[in-house]
């Protein structure tokens, strides 16, 4: 039996599962990036700062819960289906975005913020011109992490009706059929690596070179 058999003979199924995977990923991930950034920014505002550490601790605990458990938990409440899958992916990939946004912002040297204030920047200007830009490397690693986790978890979410390439992989594993497994493994790996590479390029474009030194990348 040839490794590529299933892939070539059923490329339409593979394509359909791939697009399903991408759609589920895009919906849940972009929601978690948007809302994660928002929460991360909100809890680091002056009035909310007493909760920052609490949220950081909470999200670091949440990050130690296996994705499988979250998927199963969401299933218990909402049953099987695409929406359940999307919701559980959203929840799970939300955590690294919140964590990295908040920790990136609160770890900025306080004197830099004070100087920005002293120069007459408004709170909004400080957020957009200083805080977010300096925290960007950390935020980006959260966003990338979230994307990779999302794609991987989306594979597992096939078991609660999320569809996608996980369906092919689990079918292959269940039948111990190497050709079917491969037809799922290849596109999902390419997908994950491609998305991460795109984000890496974006990161390189957006993050100031002045921050590379602090990141230890020089």
């Amino acid at each position: 039996m040839n490794l590529f058999d299933y892939l070539f003979n059923n490329y339409q199924i593979v394509l359909q599962r791939t697009s399903e995977h991408i759609i589920v990923f895009l919906i849940s991930w972009s929601a978690s990036v948007l809302i994660g950034l928002l929460i991360g920014i909100l809890i680091t505002r002056e009035k909310m700062q007493k909760y920052t550490n609490f949220v950081l601790t909470l999200s670091s605990i949440a990050q130690s819960i296996p994705s499988v458990a979250i998927i199963a938990l969401v299933f218990l409440f909402f049953g099987i289906g695409k929406l359940t899958a999307i919701f559980s992916l959203f929840i799970y990939s939300l955590v690294p975005v919140i964590f990295n946004t908040a920790s990136g912002i609160i770890n900025i040297d306080k004197t830099i913020i004070e100087v920005a204030e002293g120069m007459g920047m408004s709170k909004k200007e400080i957020l957009f011109k200083v805080e977010l830009l300096i925290a960007l490397p950390t935020i980006f690693s959260g966003i990338r992490n979230s994307a990779v986790i999302n794609i991987a978890t989306a594979t597992v979410a096939a078991v609660i009706g999320g569809g996608g390439l996980g369906v092919i992989i689990f079918t292959g594993l269940a039948h111990y059929n190497v050709s079917i497994i491969f037809a799922g493994v290849l596109p999902v790996s390419i997908l994950a690596i491609t998305i991460d590479s795109i984000l890496a390029i974006l990161e390189k474009k957006l993050v100031s070179k002045g921050l590379l030194y602090e990141e230890g990348k020089l």
Binding site: D109, T111, I112, E114, V115, A116, E117, G118, M119, G120, M121, S122, V130, L133, I134, L136, S208, G210, L211, Y213, E214
Partner: peptide, 22 residues
Amino acid sequence: KIELRRKIGYVIQEIGLFPHYT
């Protein structure tokens, strides 16, 4: 407050240059 600060130059020991700016 904001206008006041923009009219006053401010320099500190740690300098506080923005690391992400040239």
